[in-house]
């Protein structure tokens, strides 16, 4: 193993890891926003909103994220959407992650006992109040762990933006594999950084999950 080489190039990997983290954070925030909207649409009393929500989930979960990214980045200019690679990465991955999070959030909401809503409505709360004050606070506790799984997948999915030349961890590893012919060393550098990011995120999610449990 060529440790000299690894020591020489690791600062570039650290910098790239910074980009991967930034990409993950922005994607997660956008994903959460899309997921919340998606879940609201899927649980709406309006059939059109339900249909749109279901179509959103079905398309984005039914086709590869890489293709979605390519449609946005390479196909976007044809329909008037000009984005640089980083923006396209965040928006493409965020909308994709949102489709998975829609199902997570919806699953948590519908698993709250029906009686909760009925009781809240009986006491005179409006539909919105019942959702906001009674159901969501309970559902939020159930969401933390599955959203953590979504987050784990999302961090690994940020590697896809290497294919549209965003200089993050996988792209950096690929470039150095190409120039040094040391695939194992470069995999090790990038792999360790990914595992640190994923491990730290996992611990943070576990902490949050403990924090929100009532008992």
């Amino acid at each position: 193993m060529d440790t000299d080489l690894m020591l020489r190039v690791y600062p570039f990997f650290l910098q790239a890891a910074g980009t991967t983290i930034l990409l993950s954070v922005l994607t997660a925030l956008l994903g959460l926003a899309c997921g919340t909207l998606g879940a609201a649409a899927r649980l709406s009393r309006f059939a059109l909103a339900r249909f749109l929500g279901a179509a959103y989930v079905s398309f984005f979960r039914g086709t590869p994220a890489l293709i979605q990214l390519f449609i946005l980045y390479f196909g976007g200019p044809q329909i008037g959407i000009q984005l640089d690679a980083f923006e396209a990465g965040v928006i493409g991955l965020g909308i994709n992650a949102g489709a998975y999070m829609t199902e997570t959030i919806r699953g948590a909401i519908i698993s709250i006992d029906k009686g909760q809503r009925e009781a809240a409505r009986t006491l005179g709360l409006s539909r919105w109040q019942a959702m906001y004050k009674i159901i969501l606070p309970q559902a939020a506790r159930l969401m933390v762990r599955p959203l953590g799984v979504n987050l784990n997948m999302l961090i690994k999915a940020t590697a896809l933006v290497a294919a549209i030349s965003v200089v993050e961890l996988t792209y950096t590893a690929q470039r150095y594999i190409g120039s040094t012919y040391k695939p194992f060393e470069m995999f090790l550098l990038a792999g360790i950084l990914y595992m640190i990011i994923i491990y730290a995120t996992g611990r943070a999610v576990a902490w949050l999950d403990r924090k929100v449990q009532i008992v």
């Binding site: 690994k156 999915a157 940020t158 590697a159 896809l160 290497a162 294919a163 961890l169 996988t170 590893a173 690929q174 594999i177 012919y181 040391k182 695939p183 194992f184 995999f187 990038a190 792999g191 990914y194 595992m195 994923i198 491990y199």
Partner: peptide, 22 residues
């Protein structure tokens, strides 16, 4: 197992494809 679950598939593909050549 831990390494394969903690790193992106794309990175693993690069390792396998270029690593085997090496």
């Amino acid at each position: 197992e831990w390494v394969f679950m903690g790193t992106p598939l794309l990175l693993q593909l690069f390792l396998i494809y270029f690593g085997l050549v090496q």
